[in-house]
Amino acid sequence: MALKNGDFVLVNYTLWAIEDGEERIIDTTREEVAVKHNIYDARKRYGATLVVIGKTSLLPAVEKALSEMDVGEKKVIIAEPSEAFGERDERLVLRLPKKTLLQRGIRPAVGLELEVGGRRGVITKVTERFVYVDLNHPLAGKRIKIELEVTRKIEDPAEKVKYLASKWIGIPEGEVKVELSNGEALVKLPPSVLGVSDLEARLARFISDVAELVSDVKKVTVKFTVNLEEARGALEGEKEKEEKREAGEAGGAEGSGEGSEASGGAKEAKPQGGAEEASGS
């Protein structure tokens, strides 16, 4: 039976950009595929991703394909630009005065990403007076080949909450523990998430999705438990490493006066060179 709106499913995908009749892999949820095609990113969490049919923001072609699929099914589709990342719009290539960026402390270079008017763009050209910033999506105007596989459907409300927490907070689902009783969900998160800079905003999105998408849950409690003995041990370990590092740096400075002086001169020269380059522009 085909999937319907509101279904929680785990989906594997691989994307290729089709350019001049050739296919170039650009993204995948499969770690082995990423390694094979030299696009592996150690910062990325690989594995099937959560999709809530009709609710998750997807490429139009992917959303249509999933609505026709069932659990365990695989499909390969070709998406035209209008059903993928959109048509390319030359009006989104902006010309900015170079001196304006320099005044903001930005040293323009081809390939540098920056935000203009709330949109992310990339610098494609730098001249003596102007900088050209392309606000189009990098894949705009390209046909996209998409391989999809629906690996599993999630039915249990507690597991739905767990996957939503994993998605929004950015941690593996195995690190999230959820206890659900009489409509009340207790979500236990590891203390490591306390280091997430935008944790409050992430938690707000998580709570919002639970309220909208998991009708069985009426109340959510989020709990962090910190083992202070472990925390103290970690702090002592970091303090010891810092003391050893400082002792090593002091020894190196005493043992090589000429090297220290030369290094100090290089540091002095760097900001001067940058200032001269900016004013020379």
Rank of each mutant, 00 (worst) to 15 (best):
K64H: 12
N38F: 12
P60K: 00
E19V: 14
L94E: 08
V76A: 12
I18C: 00
V33E: 14
S57F: 12
K64F: 07
G105F: 09
L114I: 04
A42C: 03
A42N: 10
L58Y: 03
R104Q: 15
E22Q: 09
E23G: 05
R43E: 15
P97D: 06
N12T: 05
V110E: 13
A42K: 14
A34P: 06
A84F: 01
L92Y: 04
E87P: 03
V110D: 05
V62W: 02
V52T: 08
V51Q: 03
G72Y: 00
G47Q: 09
T56E: 02
I78M: 14
R45A: 13
R95S: 15
K74N: 14
L96I: 15
D20I: 03
A84L: 03
A17F: 00
V116G: 04
L101C: 06
S67K: 15
E68C: 08
I25S: 02
T56P: 08
R104D: 12
H37C: 07
K98V: 00
S82C: 10
A84Q: 01
T28G: 03
S57H: 10
R120N: 13
H37N: 13
R45Y: 09
V11I: 09
E32K: 11
T127L: 02
G47I: 06
V52H: 05
E113V: 04
K125N: 13
E22S: 11
A79D: 04
R30Q: 11
E22W: 01
N38E: 15
K74S: 15
R30H: 07
G86M: 00
W16T: 01
H37S: 11
G72M: 03
G121D: 02
S82G: 13
H37M: 14
I77G: 01
Y40G: 04
L59W: 01
K99D: 14
P108E: 05
R45E: 14
E31Q: 15
G86H: 01
E31M: 11
N12Q: 12
W16Y: 09
G72P: 01
V126G: 08
D70Y: 08
P60R: 02
R30S: 12
E73W: 02
I39V: 10
G121N: 06
D27F: 00
H37E: 15
D89R: 09
R45Q: 13
L101D: 08
Y46I: 11
I53C: 02
I106Q: 12
D20G: 11
S57W: 03
I53R: 06
H37I: 01
V51D: 05
K98G: 04
E68Y: 02
G118M: 09
G121Y: 03
S67R: 15
S82T: 14
G21F: 00
R107A: 12
A65T: 05
L50C: 04
Q103I: 11
I25C: 00
G121R: 00
I53V: 15
E73A: 09
L50P: 04
V51F: 00
S82P: 00
V33W: 05
G86C: 02
L94V: 11
R91Y: 12
Q103A: 13
R88I: 07
K64R: 15
L66Y: 07
L102S: 01
L15N: 11
V76N: 07
I78E: 09
E63G: 13
D41L: 11
V93T: 12
L92E: 14
V33D: 08
L66S: 10
E83H: 10
